[in-house]
Computed example of a mutant assay.
Amino acid sequence: MSLVWTDSRLQADPSLFRLGSCFPATISPREVAFSVTYDDCNFRRLVTGNELNYTNDLIYTSSPDSYVHPFSLPVVCSFERPKDWYPMTYDPEFSTYGVEDLVFHVGLMNADFTGPSESNVYPLGSMISVMAAVDQQDHQPLLLFLEECIASTTPDLHPGADSYPIITNKGCLVDSKVSRSKFEPREKLSEIHLSVQAFKFALGHEVFIHCTLVAWDPNGLDDTKKACHYNKDHGWELLDNPAYNGLCDCCESTCKSRKRRNLSEKHGLAKKAVVGPLTITA
């Protein structure tokens, strides 16, 4: 695929153009040319009816002393959907992350969490089942939390990327205030099951859920080590012990630890992980 940008005013710096994540193939004072494939540059594929679209953005980053402000223009390449084209079969895969003597796992599950999901496509409003687990090896028993989960359209979460908050504020499932999302009852201390109602975000495009997993001392619950979801009838509830729902009160403000601890004292470990890609459809 070739894309050419022409500027007759000679105001833009041609070297500052990008097509998605790709640099120009050739540059001249008046023209910028890209020569790429649809597997490059973070092109997004969307199939609608009989149409196959590849979309991206032509980005101009500008420079501090430039009169031309940064801008972005959509790039859409449309084709008739091939008659023999079918969506790729989803091959369920769990991501594994090791840190010190702990091994973390995270992945998409079927509705009752008895096995991996057979699809990564979710209609809007359906439930997305996410399981995270930690292999404790010879470690003391640990309780696993999802401290934060943010949905994004990119496999690497970075400032400026489109995003949708699911869990924030040290374990508050904020999405549960506007949906049927919830933490499921625990079966093991070392696992946590999350049901997320498919939300209206990047419909038809790949979505990645970026999470921070925390394995912690089961006796060390506080405002920053918790799993809270919102019950429409009762307000914020603590997954592991409803008698201590008060730990979730800070979900409406900012959650900070009330306990002062020696920083050298080890209570657990944290690891960032990514679930996906998955696709939410209208």
Score class of each variant (00 low, 15 high):
Ser2Met: 11
Ser2Trp: 09
Leu3Met: 06
Val4His: 10
Thr6Ile: 08
Thr6Asp: 07
Arg9Trp: 13
Leu10Asp: 08
Asp13Tyr: 13
Leu16Asn: 09
Arg18Ile: 02
Arg18Met: 02
Pro24Cys: 01
Pro29Met: 08
Ala33Cys: 11
Val36Ser: 07
Asn42Trp: 03
Phe43Pro: 00
Arg44Pro: 00
Arg45Cys: 10
Glu51Tyr: 04
Asn56Ala: 08
Asn56Ile: 09
Ile59Pro: 00
Ser62Thr: 12
His69Glu: 05
Pro70Tyr: 08
Phe71Tyr: 10
Ser72Gln: 15
Arg81His: 06
Tyr86Gln: 14
Thr96Arg: 03
Val99Gln: 11
Leu102Asn: 12
His105Pro: 15
Ser117Trp: 00
Pro123Asn: 02
Pro123Cys: 06
Ser126Cys: 01
Ile128Met: 04
Val130Arg: 15
Ala133Thr: 14
Asp135Ala: 10
Glu148Ile: 12
Ile150Ala: 03
Ile150Asp: 01
Ala151Arg: 05
Ser152Leu: 00
Thr153Ala: 09
Thr154Glu: 14
Pro155Phe: 00
Asp156Gln: 14
Asp162Arg: 11
Ile167Pro: 00
Lys170Tyr: 14
Lys170Ile: 05
Lys177Ile: 04
Lys182His: 12
Lys182Ser: 09
Phe183Ile: 05
Pro185Glu: 11
Arg186Thr: 14
Glu191Gly: 03
Leu194Ser: 04
Leu203Thr: 13
Ile209Pro: 00
Trp216Ala: 13
Pro218Gly: 11
Thr224Gly: 05
His229Ser: 13
Tyr230Glu: 01
Asn231Trp: 08
Asn231Lys: 04
Lys232Pro: 02
Asp233Ala: 15
His234Phe: 06
Leu239Phe: 05
Leu247Val: 07
Cys250Asn: 06
Cys250Val: 02
Ser253Tyr: 08
Ser253Thr: 10
Cys255Lys: 03
Lys256Trp: 08
Ser257Met: 02
Arg261Gly: 05
Ser264Val: 02
Lys266Asp: 08
Gly268His: 09
Lys271Ile: 12
Lys271Thr: 10
Leu278Gly: 03
Ala282Gly: 15
Ala282Trp: 02
